[in-house]
Amino acid sequence: MSGGLGAEFPGLRADWLCCQCRNHRCDSGVGERLARLASRFSGRQAIELRQQQVPAAYRSFFRQVGIDPDQHPTPIEQAVLGRLLSGGNLPQDRISDGLLLALLETSVPVVAFDAAAVSSPIEIRAAERGEVVAGLGVEPGTLLLASAEQPLCQLFSPPAPPLSAGLESERLLLVAVIVPGVSAIASDEALTIAAAAISGG
């Protein structure tokens, strides 16, 4: 079934980028950019976001793989909803802030793995019978992010420790899930923004 993914969704892929993070404290420059981005979204813009090209591509993909984006919003819609509910983009830590910045700037979701536990290349494939992700069995056919060695997480779900990047992680593997209709430029931009924000470059 995983072999059929390419025919079913031409352009679906995972792109990745390695970076370093020696300081996990929030970066004031990133915090300012997040605060500026927070003022970009009102209630109307949060709704109209779904008509823009990249968010619309993720919504369509969600529908096509059996997720209702009105019940489980796409990452960008979830982030904007979170901003509206919390009243702003509150800084958390350098990794979370970098990932949120990349998402808000490009609408492309990026997840961070600890490069000590996960190695590239990363692929998207369907789960096989008996596979376990984060200690839990997954239904065969569920779409996963996986390395050559192991399944990493369910597609569009956050990775769990010890694979996810945490406060002890120094080398990170950033992974962007690109769906049909999203350009390679958007993917490059998302990964570069996240890496620069996390590594402080």
């Binding site: 995983s2 792109d15 390695c18 370093q20 990363i122 692929e123 993917s187 470059g201």
Partner: peptide, 12 residues
């Protein structure tokens, strides 16, 4: 920034 690897997943 120290970028040590950059990969673009081949299409499936």
């Amino acid at each position: 920034a120290l970028l040590i690897d950059h990969g673009v997943g081949s299409e499936l």
